[in-house]
Nucleic acid binder design. Structure first.
Ligand SMILES: [Zn+2]
Ligand SMILES: [Zn+2]
Ligand SMILES: [Zn+2]
Ligand SMILES: [Zn+2]
Lengths: 149, 149
DNA sequence: TATATATTGATAATCATTATCATCCCCATT
DNA sequence: AATGGGGATGATAATGATTATCAATATATA
C-alpha cells in the first residue's frame, strides 16, 4: 500500500497499520522533500483523522524512524524533523542549511566512503553518518547584495 | 591570559572578562577534549565562583560560541554541549559518536573541501559544516563479542 | 563621586517531548 | 454473537532544557 520497501519494513517489524498510522504515513508521502516537525505532521494528519492526538504522532514518528522508514534530524530550531527515507540513500543523508532563510536542501553524494573505510580500519563499525553544510543560499546572497551594496 | 586567539576574539567583540566568565573559560580549558553540558559547566564553575548561577552559564556559553571561542553541538541526549574551539580546525569539526557507550571522538580531517567547492560553484556561500559518524567503537565491539559469541 | 550601563542570580515562563492512565479497538476464542 | 485480552489511542500531567524577567550589583565613564 505504501511501496515495497516500506511495506517490508512494516511487516518485518510487526507494525500494525492503524488508521492513525496510515494517516501519518500518508502525510509523510505527501511531503516528500520537506522536513516536518511533529506539530506540522499533527496538523496535516488531522485532516485525515480529525481526532488524532499529538502523543500518537510522537509515538508513531519515533517508531517509524526506529525502523528506518523515516529519517530524523534537527536543524536550527531545537525541534526534531522527520522525512521519508530515500531507499537508495538511506545512510547518506546530507543537508544544506541556509543560515539566513532556513531553507534546507538535500545533497546526494557519497564522498564519505573513503573516510568510513579509514574508520573501519581503525576498528570502528560505522553505522551511519550525518553531514550538514551551513550556507547562505544563492537567493539570500542575492537579496543581501541588493540591501547593502 | 587565555592564549592569543581567545584574547583577540574577546577584545574584538568587546567582551568584558568578569569573574564568572573567567571561571567558565577556565573550566573549558580544564576540559579540553570533553564535551560539557551547561549543567556540567555549572558544577565545575561553582568550585571557582560559588555563587554563579545557571543563567549566567547559559548566557556565557552562548556568547562564547557566538564569537567562535567555543563550539556547540548536540549528540544523542537532547542537550547542547560545548568545547573549546581548536584554532586550527575551527570549521572542520567532526565527531565520531559510539551508539553503544556514547563516547565521542574527534576526527581531524578535511576531506570535505572538494564538496564545499562544488557547493560554491552552485552559488552557495559555505559558512561551516558539521559531520558526525555513528559507530560502534572498538571497545564496545569487543565487549559485545564476549557476551554473544 | 555621581550616573549611566552592563552583568548577575533567583526564579518564573516557555516549549518540545515523554509518561501516565483510563478508554477504545481489534482479533481470537468460546 | 458475546467475551476477554493486549495493544493503541487521546487527554492531560510531568519533565527537563533553555530562555525571559527583573531587581540587585558591579563596572565604567564623566
Ligand atoms: Zn537562504
Ligand atoms: Zn533531508
Ligand atoms: Zn563504545
Ligand atoms: Zn568535539
Amino acid at each position: 500500500m505504501f511501496g515495497k520497501n516500506i511495506n517490508k519494513k512494516l511487516k518485518d517489524n510487526d507494525y500494525r497499520l492503524t488508521g492513525q498510522r496510515t494517516a501519518i504515513l500518508e502525510v509523510m508521502m505527501d511531503n516528500q522533500g520537506r522536513h516536518l516537525s511533529a506539530e506540522e505532521v499533527l496538523v496535516q494528519a488531522r485532516e485525515k483523522q480529525p481526532n488524532i492526538g499529538i502523543a500518537t504522532v510522537y509515538r508513531t514518528l519515533e517508531k517509524l524512524a526506529a525502523i528506518d522508514i523515516l529519517y530524523k534530524s534537527m536543524f536550527n530550531d531545537d525541534k526534531y524533523r522527520y522525512e521519508l527515507n530515500d531507499d537508495h540513500n538511506e545512510h547518506h543523508h546530507h543537508h544544506i542549511v541556509c543560515l539566513a532563510c532556513g531553507k534546507i536542501a538535500e545533497l546526494e553524494d557519497d564522498l564519505l566512503c573513503s573516510l568510513e573505510g579509514q574508520l573501519e580500519t581503525q576498528g570502528f563499525e560505522v553505522v551511519d553518518h550525518e553531514l550538514k553544510f551551513f550556507v547562505y543560499c544563492p537567493e539570500c546572497r542575492e537579496k543581501s547584495k541588493r540591501v547593502s551594496p
